[in-house]
Nucleic acid binder design. Structure first.
Lengths: 234, 234
DNA sequence: ACATGTTCCGGAACACGTTCCTAAAGTACA
DNA sequence: TGTACTTTAGGAACGTGTTCCGGAACATGT
């Protein structure tokens, strides 16, 4: 019954392979996904929509991709792949900062990438293309005097902070878009000054502060602190 | 407009009300949700299951709760509410650390609480019971010499780090439980030593390092750094 | 008693991600 | 040519969160 589709079957390719030939490829799926996102936005990327875009059955996707998370992680990988490799400074500490900032910016600029961060064990699914960042940070920490174990800690904690920053910001943006008001996004209105005097006093300062991008500065603070702690004899 | 903070009405409004009386209450729903989680685990908490537990129609839930996220956030709020208020030290810096650690521990100990963190604008939906933490941190920063704006920054960045830590750990745990192997959880096996020499060398050190709980120490580093930066004249 | 106004309940239905299972479309060998 | 084997395709169906809308259940007015 199926197969009456007008999709051209790929070349016969009599290369020793047996079984039914694939009608589509993982690459084609990823490309279509990017197309959907670019054209109609991240929110419209559903499995069915994606399948329709290619002209294949919905469930056929699952023979090329484990699940949607997998697909998104792959998209982010692909995206990080095309990232321009920044010039790395000589100072190991600065190398760490540059590498981390690169990844941070890449994740922030593509809002939908934040979705991938919540996928189970995202880091573990990074491709070679993104691993250079991890490698750079760990190597930088070692070069700065850390043991290997401490270097892992350095990366992990940088990663924690980065993920949190990207995620919280992305989620707050989404809520702000839905609610409409920037103040309401953080809900710091209508609180009791007698119980939360400082918060009540701050009030409208909050959204204005949230607009600031302090990532590089705070990142430096964290890196400095971690390296200093590692150097300190226990 | 949403104002779910000032919802203080357990009584079903005895008199003067017109219309059909409620057959259930928000409180009852929350209690049932806790019961389901405690008995059969967080994963089994579905909208239908919850409704069945109470004996009401599935969609009736949505007249008492905006959506499932809302319910979870409320559960976490309720949970933070019952948290023992720790004794706060005199040193403002230490007060910050204690407050942040309290929230961190609360979120880590209840794995399902991590789910709430991914809800849009979680902080903005915190109830009075949890706001004391925010207040404490902000007030502590001010007491330590920060301007109000800097105090907001201090809290925000502590929050970023905390969310990232909790979330990444929770997600890694989940993946590890599914995959089985601890090494695979971070996927640092089978990488190319010529391209990622440091990572390849580290190998099995990773899971062992991940097991460490460095939150308090790194938190202190961040707090110290942020306060120092705030004190530094620009 | 009946109509009106108001509030709440819940079944039907939808879109989503995902799994199962059978049929299709090839190759390899008789 | 036909039969066996192998690999892919995709429809049916499930469980999920969520919305719509008709009607039930009350208080009040006539």
């Amino acid at each position: 019954m199926p197969g009456q589709r007008d999709r051209r079957e790929p070349a016969p390719t009599p290369t020793g392979r047996t079984g039914r030939p694939r009608s589509t490829s993982r690459a084609e799926i990823l490309a279509a996904a990017r197309r959907v996102i670019d054209e109609d936005g991240w929110e419209t990327l559903t499995v069915r929509r994606l399948a329709a875009e290619i002209g294949i059955g919905t469930t056929t996707l699952y023979h090329h991709v484990h699940n949607k998370d997998d697909l998104v992680v792959e998209l982010v990988n692909q995206h990080l792949d095309q990232l321009a490799r920044p010039e790395l400074p000589d100072d190991p500490r600065e190398r760490i900062v540059v590498a981390a900032t690169t990844m941070h910016d890449a994740l922030t600029n593509w809002a939908w990438a934040a979705e991938a961060l919540t996928a189970d064990g995202f880091i573990g699914r990074l491709g070679d293309s993104a691993l250079w960042i991890v490698e750079t940070i760990v190597a930088g920490a070692v070069a700065a005097g850390c043991t290997q174990g401490q270097a892992v800690d350095v990366f992990r904690n940088i990663w924690y902070y980065t993920v949190g920053e990207v995620l919280v910001r992305a989620r707050s943006d989404r809520r702000r878009a839905r609610v409409g008001s920037a103040d309401l996004a953080f809900g710091l209105d209508g609180l009791d000054p007698s119980r939360q005097p400082q918060l009540a006093a701050i009030g409208d300062l909050w959204p204005e502060r949230t607009a600031l991008d302090l990532y590089p500065r705070v990142l430096r603070i964290i890196v400095d602190g971690l390296l200093a702690e590692a150097a300190r004899p226990v």
